[in-house]
Write a protein that binds this DNA or RNA. Structure first.
Lengths: 331, 331
DNA sequence: TTGAAAGCGCTAACAA
DNA sequence: TTGTTAGCGCTTTCAA
């Protein structure tokens, strides 16, 4: 048996298709009697609206495209993705909208995304971990509203976003380390083309001032191996360091291994501070003192911005949420 | 300016809409001349097919719904999700199909999924980490094809799936521990309503036989905390144990902490084997000897099964792929 | 090999 | 407050 259409519902309720449509779309001009009859007819027939048909006439799709860049190895771990996905799906579902996933890895992917979005298949775009200078951003400019979870470097004024106050988080950690009496504080940063890479270093420098010398800074790529390498490098350059702020927990786990290999005790000889408060933070030995980000709130705000734009808001302001220091044993 | 339609392309190419449509759909009856003219017209106008319109007539949506249950805390970590998502998006994109994400957490979610799918909005359903006895499975039975990434307990013959050979993996670990000369081998399992929980225990029991006494088995819920608790419990019940197989790396990290607290050296006093080969496995101290699952292949096979079914295959066989022992330092 | 034309199911403008 | 009706853009017979 075929799926019932609005026509079947109208027939069963003894009204016209137009009236059923009005009810479906929350129009106020529907009499109580008609309403009751239609609602009964809907549940009797098991009617479900055909989105394709609706979309054909409304020019809306009820769809948001989540576009994931896939940079660094971080992707595989990143709780951002799962949290954001869940929050997005949930919030969209409340409005009967759906989330479609797209990858923007290579040129082919990107072209597909542009075709899809410009082809009118999405009412909005949700960017995630977009690279600085990603051509996709400008290619998308002419289409439906787009927002980013986390700022898009260099496009902060063009793409609205919600994000963690990374710089604040880095400051919190740096201040904590200083407060613990540490004198020679080093840092291992993330990639310098990501907000986390840049801003966590900025926050660190805010606090350390000129003590944050080049000698005490190493760069990683979010992987554990890079944390290990970075730490070894720092140890070679500044053997007298007594603390290190590592821009991610995973890299911090690598740093811990390098310190252990060098025979340094943590936190006695060297204090180690992480960032993210990920699952890794509690599985290392010792567990990491780190910075927690309000991931769920950031996700929520991101979607809120996008929905506002889809609803016609001409402009929305970025949202930046505070981080929190989590003290464990490594510092 | 409005988006060009098939009509504009037809006009620009000097043919009828029907001919353009035939070309678009790979019909063979299109003359080379017409083909060339149409292709030029398409690129000149920047035409993109309107899926809603197409879908209205074909009754196909070009969409697969990925339905995620969200059980245990494991979700947040699970590399399954990210790998599966990427693979699915990529494979579907090749056929110009898209992946929409749905949550099946509570009753409301589930109802929404059923409405969506039975409402004809998806050509196929991809189930992930579905609970044993989840009513969703039967509710979906009447709709479009569904497959699962990982077996659905109790519905193995109804929902085709691709999965890791969990039982084999557990056997590999158990055999390795025995081969290392361990005599009193304990196990911390996952939840006993998940394939990983059940089958990893079965594999363990396959090898240990009656040595796998109840006394040596503790149950966890995939969280690190549960691994720690489980280990403490085992240590209390069987202080003489000299090895433990923990059903996930994250739980194994917890077990490591409990062993450390109890003053046991790893692997000297107690060998620890994990499962998953996740990022946690290399961040613990010592790094975990564990079991690697071919996640990408499993994902790929899952999608292959689904596509076959969507293409009309009446029946497909489940696919089970082998695991691999990864030796590090914990055992 | 091609064109013409009939819908697919729905919304929204208009008339009643 | 309701019914009628004209499309939305596409595929797919059917005839030519």
């Amino acid at each position: 048996m075929k799926r019932p259409t609005i026509h079947d519902v109208a027939a069963a309720a003894g009204v016209s298709r137009g009236t059923v449509s009005r009810l479906l779309n929350g129009d106020k001009y529907v009499s109580p009697a008609a309403r009751a009859a239609i609602e009964r007819a809907i549940s009797e027939t098991g009617y479900v609206v055909n989105r394709a048909a609706r979309s054909l006439v409304t020019q809306r799709t009820g769809t948001v495209a989540m576009v994931m860049s896939e940079p660094h190895a971080k992707f595989f771990e990143d709780p951002n993705y799962s949290t954001l996905t869940r929050v997005a799906v949930r919030m969209l579902a409340e409005r009967d909208m759906s989330l479609v996933m797209m990858l923007a890895g290579d040129e082919g992917d990107r072209e597909r995304v542009v075709r899809y979005v410009r082809g009118g298949h999405a009412d909005g775009v949700l960017l995630v971990s977009t690279h600085a200078g990603d051509p996709l951003v400008d290619a998308l400019a002419a289409g439906p509203p787009a927002v980013s979870c986390g700022a898009v470097i260099g496009r902060e004024t063009i793409i609205p976003y919600a994000a963690t106050d990374e710089r604040l988080g880095a400051r919190q950690m740096a201040e904590y380390l200083v407060g613990q009496g540490r004198r020679r504080i080093a840092m291992i940063t993330g990639p310098m083309d990501t907000p986390g890479g840049i801003q966590r270093l900025e926050g660190f420098a805010d606090v350390l001032g000129r003590k944050a010398s080049r000698k005490l800074i190493a760069h990683g790529d979010w992987t554990q191996a890079s944390g290990e390498r970075g730490m070894a490098e720092l140890l070679a350059r500044a053997p007298d360091l007594d603390a290190v702020f590592v821009a991610s927990d995973l890299m911090a786990a690598g740093a811990l291994a390098a310190l252990r290999a060098a025979g340094r005790r943590v936190p006695d000889d060297v204090a180690v501070g992480g960032f993210d408060d990920s699952s890794v933070a509690v599985s290392t030995h010792p567990p990491l003192t780190t910075i927690r980000q309000p991931l769920a709130e950031v996700a929520q705000e991101t979607i809120r911005l996008l929905l506002a734009l889809i609803d016609g808001a001409g402009h929305v302001d970025p949202v930046v949420l505070p981080t929190e220091l989590v003290i464990r044993e490594s510092a």
